[in-house]
Simulated assay, not measured.
Amino acid sequence: MRILAAFDKCKGSLSAREICSLAKDVISSRSSLDHVQTMPLTDGGEGFADLLTNAKDGSFHSVFAKDSRGREKEVKIGIISSADIDPDLQEFINLPCPGNIAVIEMSSIAGLADLMEEERNPWLTSTFGVGQLLKHCDKYEVSLILLGIGGSSTNDMGVGALSSLGVKFIDGDDLPVSFPSPETWSNIKEISTNSLSTLPPIRIACDVSNQLLGKGGATYQFGLQKGLCPDRKQEMEEEMLQMSASLARAFQKPLSFREQEGSGAAGGIGYGLSLAFDTSFVSGFSLISKWFNLEEAVKESDLILTGEGRFDRTSLYGKGPFEIIRMASNYGKNIILLAGSVESEAVKECKIKFPNIEVVSFGNDQLSLNENLARAPEFFSNELLKQLSNY
């Protein structure tokens, strides 16, 4: 039997690469007759630069930049030659000309997972370091930047990134705000774009369609998971409303940029960058699918294994495992989705649309979250072996 194992990460326990490797080990222990192909997934967060760069035999380059709380951190960016990119993939990312492609992972420098619980506060976090990584690309003759924005800790619309890229944010005392975060915005009286750096086109890999503002926007949809106090949501929304308008005026762009699909992802970084640079969004799943020739792998397989840390209603809106399910169902494939935890309503909706799927949780609801995370490899392996006994 030909089996495709295409998993996203289980946040806090297993990377996408680790869970795919576990699946392969379990399948191999069961039968030597099964052929297994692994394909780690990424939502633009953890593993984005590593997976894409390694797949095209690219190189990694170390960069020192400030994390979302202003501390120096060493991270890596990937550099890939456009000559190693298939023509249809070049067309998909709208490559403007031959040259190098930089692959940058926002979460590597401004990731939520890097912060302790008590440090998670979107009033104080900034994308300053993301701008530093973008600026560093001028050393490598880059003709395009691929930016993955999953797993971020910020809600600053890219103001921090713009600051490190030359935009001046001046306070009431005519002094520059050196590390702008939403907490400092009320002090900003002037924005100057005269010293803005030059960047090649940016393609943001994103599967979130939320607009910047409103109940479905950055603050209301994602603020709480980044540490925002519930009773300060409206206050943050009002700051976003005012600063987004100030940025639009500074760059002489229409306020309609706030209504772009995806402008609310990752705290609105795409909004800020799109005002200043040639920036557009690409489907993260479509990018991964084309990068790894995923559809062909699905067509050639008899059984599809996929999953993530938690399968809930948000999974039904463009996340990798759900898109795998959709693709596999188009070819009539049997599918098993394994997640650490599952939401019953999401499972019900998924099975109505795709009856050829089994959705199972490998977590133990009698144990604490910390113990489930610590024992995730064990629980995943046992549940997968149990599910495979039906095939």
Rank of each mutant, 00 (worst) to 15 (best):
M1D: 07
I3D: 09
D8N: 14
K9Q: 11
K11I: 04
R17P: 02
S31M: 04
V36R: 03
T38W: 02
M39R: 07
L41P: 08
T42M: 09
G44N: 06
F48N: 03
A49W: 05
D50T: 05
T53Q: 06
N54H: 08
S59D: 09
S62H: 05
F64I: 14
F64W: 03
F64T: 15
K66Y: 00
K66N: 05
I80P: 15
S82T: 14
D86S: 15
L89F: 04
E91G: 01
N94T: 02
C97P: 00
G99I: 06
A102M: 04
S107V: 12
I109R: 06
A113L: 14
N121E: 04
W123H: 11
L124H: 10
S126F: 14
G129F: 12
L133F: 10
L134H: 03
L134I: 10
K139W: 01
Y140A: 09
V142L: 01
L146P: 03
L147C: 05
G148Q: 00
S152A: 13
N155G: 09
L162I: 09
V167C: 04
L175P: 01
P176I: 06
S181V: 08
P182V: 10
P182E: 09
E183P: 02
W185D: 00
S186M: 13
S186F: 11
N187F: 03
I188R: 11
I188H: 11
I191D: 08
T193G: 05
L196F: 05
S197Q: 10
S197K: 07
S197A: 15
T198P: 00
A205L: 14
C206I: 07
S209I: 09
L213R: 00
L213N: 01
G214E: 00
G216V: 09
A218L: 08
Y220G: 02
G223L: 12
Q225G: 15
G227D: 05
L228D: 12
D231G: 05
K233N: 09
E237N: 04
M240A: 04
M240W: 04
S244F: 12
S244V: 10
S246C: 12
L247H: 03
A250S: 14
L255V: 12
F257H: 15
G264V: 08
A266L: 07
G270N: 05
Y271A: 01
L273G: 06
S274D: 11
L275N: 05
F277A: 08
S280A: 11
F281E: 02
S283E: 09
S283F: 06
G284N: 13
F285W: 07
L287R: 11
L287E: 13
N293L: 11
L294A: 04
L294C: 10
E295N: 06
E296W: 07
V298C: 02
D302E: 15
E308A: 09
E308S: 07
D312Q: 06
L316Q: 07
Y317R: 13
K319M: 12
I324S: 02
L338P: 08
A346K: 02
K348F: 13
I352V: 12
K353H: 11
F354M: 02
E358S: 14
S361D: 04
S361M: 04
L369Y: 04
L369M: 14
E371Q: 15
N372H: 13
R375Y: 08
F380P: 14
F380R: 14
N382Y: 02
L384A: 11
L384D: 10
L385I: 00
L385S: 14
S389R: 07
